[in-house]
Design a protein around this nucleic acid. Structure first.
Length: 295
DNA sequence: AACAAACACAACCGCAGTCAA
DNA sequence: TTTGACTGCGGTTGTGTTTGT
């Protein structure tokens, strides 16, 4: 009954593919197609598992693949699709011609997740951390809320410490100076801030970022929540990586972080900055198209 | 210049649904 | 109808490269 195994496991090479192997696989597929992955390695003269050949072809060798940097438009697409689809990389990748699920997954895990976290947005739910904390806090009795606040702020402190010490020496509002330990940030030091628990329970934003987060939660309130394109992460423009605002390509670049300008007091109107453009038309795509993508 | 840490990406692993024997 | 390979997918790991100290 059944079929014969796809490959003899003990006679199969693993690890990085050599250019020679790539050539063999490519030329075989060019002539015979990808009909039967079990037979392909044998017929192509490769000591590889069929599964390995399939992965190599679909993720790297296919002629229609793009190999360069992701464009800003592609970033936007990934984030917005991820907000509603979650980790359905194959579906997301299907909306990005020339990109594979592996590409998208790697890009998300290495870049986009960090960008969102750095902006105070939870990459899993795509909601501002302050909003999430408020949601959780309202569901818990007060004694647990205090404990939760301590724990959460500890995590956040670690994250911020990492970001601040590594990527950025100034913080919006002029709170930190270069070389100043991040622990002196009132936000990071919130475990000693008697009002920290209250702030979280009430869903209040952290000091210094108040303006931005208020805008985001406003949108949440007004629109009733999700997906984030409804509020376009409006105003939650953060400090990320090398200090540039994400999506600055279409944003008013002058509003950036250069020089440590104080953002509090700036016009809180939603910036139409790339990813955060609430007018983005991506969701004109019918839901069916997203779930049954054209390949 | 040497070493360590962080990053980026390719590849592997294991699971679940599908389909052929 | 049952069994087990095939396929697609998402999570995780391994490794080469880059950056910082």
């Amino acid at each position: 009954m059944g079929r014969i195994p796809c490959c003899e496991k003990d006679n199969v090479k693993k690890g990085q593919w050599t250019p020679e192997e790539d050539n063999k696989l490519s030329s075989y597929i060019a002539q015979h197609g990808t009909r039967n992955w079990r037979l392909i390695p044998k017929k192509a003269g490769l000591q590889r598992c069929g599964k390995s050949c399939r992965l190599r072809w679909t993720n790297y060798l296919r002629p229609d693949l793009k190999h360069g940097e992701f464009s800003e438009a592609e970033e936007q697409t990934i984030v917005k699709l991820h907000a509603v689809l979650g980790n359905r990389w194959s579906v997301i990748a299907a909306q990005l011609p020339g990109r594979t699920d592996n590409d998208v997954k790697n890009y998300w895990n290495t870049k986009l997740k960090k960008k969102l976290s750095g902006m105070g947005i939870d990459p899993v739910t795509h909601k501002p951390f302050s909003h999430l904390m408020a949601e959780i806090a309202t569901a818990l009795p007060p004694p647990h809320v205090a404990n939760l606040a301590e724990a959460a702020l500890g995590c956040f402190k670690d994250e911020m410490l990492h970001l601040l010490t590594k990527k950025r020496v100034e913080i919006v509002g002029g709170g930190l100076q270069p070389q100043q330990p991040a622990i002196q940030n009132p936000n990071a030091n919130s475990s000693h801030d008697p009002s920290a628990g209250d702030r979280i329970r009430l869903g209040l934003p952290r000091a210094g970022e108040e303006q931005e987060f208020m805008v985001a939660t406003d949108f949440l309130g007004n629109c009733g929540g999700y997906p984030p394109t409804e509020f376009g992460y409006g105003g939650v423009s953060g400090f990320v990586d090398d200090g540039e605002e994400w999506g600055s390509g279409t944003a008013g670049d002058g509003g950036g972080e250069e020089g440590g300008g104080n953002r509090v007091g700036e016009d809180p109107k939603v910036e139409k900055s790339g990813l955060f453009d609430p007018d983005c038309v991506l969701w004109d795509l019918p839901a069916d198209d997203l779930l049954n993508p054209v390949v």
